[in-house]
């Protein structure tokens, strides 16, 4: 019963995402697609950070690896449909690698290792000109077509990104519902107890990084085709921080958290543009206020309201 309203809101939101976009102009459509890309990426980070409880501040690097994979593959004349799975697989493998430090260190030290990884990845994007085009980037990244259906238009591409987001969400839902998912949260809540319960802590730690990374890889692939240009700037440390911010603001360890968090991280600055030069200051302040109001993230609001309702209905003594 308690979960019903949440799902109802989810269904209404989904319906809106399906029905409303044809009425939007290109700016709105583009922003919605941009938002969805970050929803996919932060869903992955949410698995690593929110469910498995690993500090990861280098997630933008995976977004970049995904974006560059697709751009490079398509420049070489191959199809987007080769690039997309390649992005996911490549990020999965690199993510496994990044998971190894997590086996030895935690919290700030792990954050440091992931930050370091992100710096290194950025340097490769900037200096390996033969592969990545260096700082001038890769231009004219195409958009795919599917069964003869051209996804090049802004509306068509939006629906494509939406479809991918739904598929990724469904897959993640499956993972989280399975015994695996339970193991992830056990890892976050008490690793030593999880170990004593027979959970292979090593394997699950690595997996949480790898799956989180491959989501970002898919998001990166979609981003490259959305912007149709790839250069290193959108994959810097600042973006990693913003993605972390999105996870926590939305509600880390909650399924719909990333969707809301990405609204804050991607759409809120655009809505605040009326504040002119001060819009990013307003954004920063909004984030602080949000955290002070709901330290558990936006999705802790229903629980908060419920707790208040219970407190109010309790007879006063």
């Amino acid at each position: 019963m308690t979960r019903q309203p949440r799902w109802l809101i989810g269904m209404v939101g989904m319906a809106a995402l399906l029905v409303l976009p044809p009425f939007l102009r290109s700016y709105g459509l583009y922003l919605l697609s941009y938002w969805l890309v970050f929803v996919i990426a932060t869903m992955g980070l949410n698995l690593t950070v929110g469910y498995a409880g690993q500090a990861s501040l280098g997630h933008a690097a995976f977004l970049g690896i995904g974006a560059y994979s697709v751009a490079i593959v398509m420049k070489a004349g191959c199809s987007f449909w080769l690039g997309l799975p390649l992005s996911a697989v490549l990020c999965f493998v690199v993510g496994l690698g990044l998971g190894f430090p997590a086996l030895r260190v935690q919290s700030i030290y792990l954050a440091f290792a992931t930050l370091g990884f992100s710096v290194a990845a950025l340097l490769v994007m900037r200096y390996e000109e033969w592969l990545t085009g260096g700082t001038s980037g890769i231009n004219d990244v195409g958009r795919p077509s599917l069964f003869g259906l051209d996804l090049g238009g802004n509306l068509a591409y939006y629906y494509f990104v939406l479809a991918v987001a739904v598929v990724v969400a469904a897959l993640l839902r499956g993972v989280l519902r399975s015994p695996w998912g339970k193991a992830f949260t056990a890892l976050r809540d008490n690793p030593i107890r999880a170990e004593s319960l027979g959970i292979d802590v090593r394997a699950y730690t690595l997996l949480s990084f790898a799956i989180g990374a491959s989501c970002a890889g898919i998001a990166g692939a979609l981003l490259a085709s959305l912007v149709q240009f790839v250069d290193p700037t959108p994959f810097g440390l600042g973006v990693s921080f913003t993605m972390y911010l999105m996870v926590v603001v939305g509600g880390s360890g909650t399924f719909f958290g990333p969707a809301l968090g990405a609204v804050v991280g991607v759409l809120l600055p655009e809505w605040l543009r009326f504040a002119q030069g001060w819009y990013l200051t307003a954004f920063g302040v909004a984030v602080i206020v949000l955290m002070l109001w709901l330290p558990g993230g936006l999705l802790s609001l229903p629980d908060r309201l419920k707790a208040r309702a219970i407190a109010a209905s309790r007879p006063r003594t």
Binding site: F241, L245, T281, F283, G284, I288
Partner: peptide
């Protein structure tokens, strides 16, 4: 986590 994110917000607000 909330402190990290609030200070991230703070840094964005101060810088800009």
């Amino acid at each position: 986590m909330p402190v990290v994110v609030a200070t991230l917000g703070l840094s964005i607000a101060l810088r800009n």
